[in-house]
Write a protein that binds this DNA or RNA. Structure first.
Ligand code: ZN
Ligand code: ZN
Ligand code: ZN
Ligand code: ZN
Lengths: 140, 140
DNA sequence: CTTGCTTCTCCAGTGACTGGAGATTGTAGC
DNA sequence: GCTACAATCTCCAGTCACTGGAGAAGCAAG
């Protein structure tokens, strides 16, 4: 089988070279064999593993969760409840983040909309920041 | 005027003590006078300044932006366009974040919903992570 | 053989805190 | 005055997931 140099792996997987080395250093990607000149040589499957990792990162999973997911993916006979649980946890996290951001958005829209764009003295942006009581939905 | 110790300031402002010291170290909060025994002594206005900072942090402004906003707040005669611009920038950022999160949510909901919760082999969560092509709206 | 590209290791920096160690200061009760 | 105990001091390391630079070494083509 044709082994890949790290640059090739990087291009094929869409993961930057320093990131690949970083993943190896934290044990997320197994250390590959080395050439005579000490360069990393990856088997073709490494592309798939890295793409898996990248996709999970894009969905916002933390490294620890990805480690579990990647391990589970190697074990086709196991029940998938743990994988599903990790996904549901991430979903909850996302929903919390979205609602926090939505509250921030609401307040910013109001601040910006209310401001007549005159002097600082009458600026609604500064004014609202200065007095949290002026933001009614104080839930952030 | 009654000066405040850092613990009092912390309670009144809702900002933790190490964070107050950190803000001082990065020049966001001016260094206060010291007591004979080298403790920090804050004027009452410090509470307001810290609350302003906290409110801005809660809205997700970065420290650099807050530095500008807090400086502007001291200058009531200036036009407020810069403050408004910073707020609009933050709003744009928020909206980008929300849409990224919404895309992630959509994919996770589908993964979780499609999964029959059997073995890993048939798990839609693992399967989708493994092949990004299986997520149609590949926009994350 | 030289040029230029790739890769190597090691280390420091990012942002915004957070917390621990170990020393000192302040205060209240006895 | 003495003794607890609380509050504060400085300094430093750790968090998360990378990112990039320095300086050295390997490798392929002309
Ligand atoms: Zn304004
Ligand atoms: Zn608010
Ligand atoms: Zn499943
Ligand atoms: Zn996807």
């Amino acid at each position: 089988m044709a082994m890949l140099a790290i640059g090739r792996l990087s291009k094929d997987s869409g993961v930057k070279i320093p990131t690949i080395r970083y993943y190896e250093s934290i044990g997320l990607l197994p250390p590959p064999v080395r050439s005579e000149g000490n360069r990393r040589l990856y088997p073709p499957e490494a592309v798939r593993r890295l793409r898996f990792i990248r996709h999970a990162r894009e969905l916002g999973f933390e490294i620890d969760a990805i480690r579990r997911l990647a391990d589970l993916a190697q074990d086709p006979e196991k029940p998938c409840c743990e994988a599903d649980l990790l996904a549901r946890r991430r979903l909850v996290e996302i929903e919390e983040k979205i609602s926090r951001l939505a509250a921030q958005r609401e307040e910013l829209v109001r601040m910006i909309g209310d401001c007549a764009h005159g002097r600082i003295e009458e600026c609604r942006v500064i004014d609202t920041l200065d007095d949290h009581a002026k933001c009614l939905h104080a839930k952030h």
